[in-house]
Design a protein around this nucleic acid. Structure first.
Lengths: 215, 215
DNA sequence: GATTGTGAAGTAGTTCACAGCT
DNA sequence: AGCTGTGAACTACTTCACAATC
């Protein structure tokens, strides 16, 4: 079915992108969409959409377009979001709490199965979602027991590497890191960083550039 | 000083990256760092560090390395984060609140000067930081009055485009969008998207791939 | 006639490898 | 001797353009 050899990293990112408008269309919209329309909704080039999808098979019909329902199902299958994924969070501050409550996580089948914090004050506290905050030294045991695949780091930067090491030891296969620093992992655990300030710095740079080019 | 013509987008992102370990080093570390060491801390290639920096001038000393203090100052100047940047937030839910309280924003000089929410229940409420939540229809007036340059969207996806339009109308030059959808802007406003679920989907994809390559 | 799927062409970003400086 | 700065080589990604299909 696939001519998969090596899929470009940006392609994976865009697949997730494509799924957003497709979900909307599924509820209320025509059952078929062209690469041009889909590209438009996502701010990419139509040929890009076609090429991205073609890495994984022939999902479209020439002269017609892509069936919205089928395409969405395929994308979810590819991204392995067709079944629930178990997460844990480390660091239950403002950010951590907002992630646990996050509707988009819930909607897409990401389930927080455990929450940890190094602050003894917080340990034992029961969250709105029903989880009880556990101490960090329980990470290994709990993650293994609950078959947690992905750990989310929402601690201050200082503690991030230690938490990362604990998660690695617990056998998680992926880490979503919100701390503004690079954490080091072994080969069989992948890290994605979400650093808001990098994005802001990017904006600040371009704001400044715009000023310059006007002057 | 610069041979600036067109700076690659990834270079800007990495500059923000480089500044993290430099800040740490400034407090407690040798006053000089080599491209190799810096690259190591950030998980990039040493030649990449040198090339990135060289776009903006000759900051290093051959045979020696880069002066930590000077380099950090230069990077901050380039990213225009050497002076405070004024932000507003729209959508004061869990996520919005955690962003307003975020230490890393504060530390880097990003200042929230206004907060808006479409929920009448919340309007008038006073936040921990002292800001009072205002209704969305005040965005234009308040942003202009307070000279807000960047708007942060932390609403559910449904309302995001409307909020974006209000921010454009208010004359903001940059938007940091946390809603999981593409918002449309005009040419003189830049958008950066922070979509956590895209990152998770990325992880999920690769988790799955690892399984496959083992089998 | 419309729209996909794809090789080929084009563009952007990364790494090499070494001259040049301290 | 050590490390930067940089043209050249390489690699990755995007877009074009058109044959294939409905």
């Amino acid at each position: 079915m696939t001519k998969v050899d090596k899929i470009p990293e940006p392609t994976i990112k865009r697949l997730a992108f494509y799924s957003r408008p497709l979900e909307d269309l599924l509820e209320s919209g025509p059952p078929v969409i062209s690469s041009e329309k889909l590209a438009d909704s996502c701010g990419v080039h139509p040929a890009q959409v076609r090429k991205d999808l073609a890495y994984f098979g022939e999902f479209g019909v020439r002269g017609v377009g892509y069936d919205v329902r089928d395409l969405l199902r395929e994308i979810k299958r590819i991204l392995a979001t067709d079944k629930p994924v178990y997460l844990c969070i480390v660091g239950v501050g403002n950010l951590g709490t907002s992630l646990i409550e996050n509707e988009n996580f819930k909607k897409r089948g990401y389930r927080f199965k455990a929450a940890f914090d190094s602050d003894p004050e917080k340990q034992g506290e029961k969250l709105a979602c029903g989880l009880i905050i556990e101490p960090n030294h329980r990470i290994r045991e709990v993650c293994r027991e609950k078959e947690i695949e992905i750990g989310v780091i929402a601690t201050p930067p200082r503690g991030a590497q230690r938490v990362c090491d604990l998660l690695l030891d617990a056998g998680v296969k992926g880490i979503l890191n919100f701390a503004p620093m690079q954490v080091r992992t072994t080969g069989d655990c992948r890290v994605e960083n979400v650093d808001f300030t990098v994005k802001l710095e990017n904006l600040a740079y371009h704001l400044h550039r715009l000023d310059e080019s006007e002057g």
